[in-house]
């Protein structure tokens, strides 16, 4: 279970208002896509869910409990870059989450527990098509392979919530189709609630079950920091009716 409740949420840095009066109710196992112009608080919202930023005012609840003030294994994250560990091989990167949970002091597993972890990691490697690269270091992988690994790495601890911050933003368009398939498969298999920031409108419609558009309602040209962004469109997406209001929204965003 991971239902997210947002009540009168504000985020300010000094005089600068980033998010104003955000109110949302996200159901368990929803795939939420977040879009909006740069600097519209999408990432700030994600970072608050992650626990590395705290709300200035209002409430951010997961299953009725406030989000803890630091990252934890119930909330996985995939960044656009830099979230793999360069000193570990592909397999070791994947095993790391299991080793953290299984061994408090050494962070390493031995014997039967290691074999169990290995089995889990290898089946996941197989699922993302990286089993042939298991002994390579991240720097030897292509960008697409790195992101696939990074997603698998986040999923292995079975988080309730998976946060994706433009995970495919740096990839070739050809690769993203594979990535979409993988993320949808993992989402269905792992019963997670997903929040994904993207700049690709098509992607946000294809993947999401609910689309949130972040934008500023009011704008003061003399004091751009005066007003913050909020959710201006909250669109439930039915998977079967994908071709819904895309054109109209494109115009709205291109402004």
């Amino acid at each position: 279970m991971a239902a997210v409740t947002v009540k009168n949420l504000w985020k300010e840095y000094g005089d600068q208002v980033v998010l104003e009066n955000l109110n949302l109710q996200i159901a368990d196992r929803e795939f939420v896509t977040l879009i909006g112009a740069s600097g519209c608080g999408k990432t700030t919202f994600l970072r608050m869910l992650l626990g590395v930023e705290q709300p200035t005012r209002g409430q951010l609840l997961i299953d009725g409990q406030p989000v803890p003030p630091e990252p934890g294994p119930d909330r996985g994250i995939v960044f656009q870059r830099y979230s793999l560990f360069p000193h570990l091989s592909v397999l070791e990167n994947l095993m790391l989450g299991l080793e953290f949970s299984g061994s408090r002091w050494l962070g390493k597993l031995f014997g039967a527990r290691r074999r169990a972890a290995l089995e889990k990691a290898e089946s996941l490697l197989e699922a993302i098509g990286l089993h042939t690269a298991r002994d390579k270091y991240p720097s030897q992988l292509s960008g697409g392979m790195q992101q696939r690994l990074s997603i698998a790495q986040s999923v292995i601890r079975e988080p309730k919530i998976l946060l994706l911050d433009e995970p495919f933003g740096a990839l070739d368009p050809g690769i993203t189709a594979d990535m979409h398939e993988i993320i949808l498969r993992l989402w269905q298999a792992n019963r997670m609630t997903i929040f994904m920031i993207t700049h690709d409108l098509k992607e946000s419609f294809q993947l999401g079950t609910r689309l949130l558009v972040f934008d500023k309602r009011r704008h003061d040209p003399h004091a751009p920091e005066r007003y913050g962004a909020t959710v201006t469109y909250d669109i439930p997406l039915n998977r079967k009716k994908q071709a819904m209001p895309a054109p109209a929204l494109t115009v709205e965003l291109a402004r």
Binding site: E70, I77, Y82, S83, L96, G97, F100, G107, S154
Partner: peptide, 17 residues
């Protein structure tokens, strides 16, 4: 990269690990 350290925490790493 900060991303790395945050990622490790979401994988359940304590300060020691």
């Amino acid at each position: 990269p900060k991303e790395q350290l945050i990622k490790a925490q979401t994988l359940g790493a304590s300060s020691w690990l």
